[in-house]
Amino acid sequence: MNITVFCSAYSLDARYTAPAAEFARLLGEAGHTLVWGGSHAGLMGLLADGVKEAGGRLVGISVELLAHKTYEGADELVMTADLAERKAQLLARADAVVVLVGGLGTLDEVTEVLELKKHALHDKPVVVLDTEGFYAGLRTQLERMDQEGFLPRSLAELITFAATPAEAFARLDRAS
């Protein structure tokens, strides 16, 4: 399975890196392909290293403005002209999407993927690894949107949340 992962390109505290490393190990050991932003920096680099060390394949989708941060050991590296094309490629290459902790870029990516899924432009599973309750606010907002009729599909059809790397991986296995 090609699993696109959205996450931070910044170096983070161990409470965030340890679960990401565990998810990377599970992904690689299962023989899946990581499709990610193609960066060697921060959590992105840690994820790629972990997948590669565990025997998985790496497909990086980067963008010209970040070419200086590309991961050297990717099995395939695609360079896009802009961030919009990068997001489109990340989704096009995915059989499933996993969201790890991240900043504005990650939030932008996951909301676009959900918007496209809402309109039935894809039906790929989207799983959020909610490490340390990082996405509790997003979850609360999405639940409110669902409860108050802002979503044409139920929230459970659009996205699932997992507390641990093993739970996130199990949700992917059930979806495939």
Rank of each mutant, 00 (worst) to 15 (best):
R144A: 02
V126N: 14
V5C: 06
A81R: 03
G105E: 06
D82R: 00
T4Q: 09
L91R: 12
Q147W: 11
L121S: 08
P125T: 11
K52L: 03
L138H: 14
L138T: 09
D13W: 12
I159M: 06
H68L: 08
G55K: 13
A136N: 08
Y16V: 06
Q141M: 14
K117H: 08
D130E: 10
R144T: 02
V98I: 04
Y10C: 15
S11Y: 15
L116C: 14
D49E: 10
E148A: 13
V110K: 13
T164F: 04
A96P: 00
M79P: 07
P125F: 14
L107M: 07
D130A: 10
V101P: 13
D173T: 01
G60D: 13
E85A: 13
P152A: 08
A41E: 07
G102T: 11
A9L: 08
Q147L: 05
E143G: 09
F134M: 10
N2L: 06
F161Y: 07
K87Q: 11
H119L: 10
G42S: 11
L129I: 02
P19E: 11
A94R: 00
L104V: 12
K118A: 15
L151S: 08
F150L: 05
A162D: 00
K124Y: 05
L65N: 02
F23S: 04
A94T: 01
V5P: 00
A24D: 12
F6S: 06
A48N: 12
L155S: 00
E167Y: 00
T17N: 12
V127L: 06
F161N: 03
S11Q: 15
I3Y: 09
A24E: 13
F150I: 05
E53M: 12
G103D: 00
V110Y: 11
G73P: 06
A136Y: 09
M44Y: 10
H122Y: 04
L142N: 02
R15L: 07
A14Y: 14
R174G: 14
F23K: 02
G31A: 15
V63G: 08
V59T: 07
R86H: 03
L107F: 06
G37Q: 01
T4Y: 07
N2W: 04
F150Y: 09
A14F: 14
R86N: 05
A136H: 11
G133M: 10
V51Y: 03
V99F: 00
L107D: 05
A48E: 05
L83N: 04
Y10V: 13
F6L: 05
R57E: 07
T4S: 10
L46D: 11
T131L: 09
T111F: 04
D82W: 00
K69I: 06
Q147M: 07
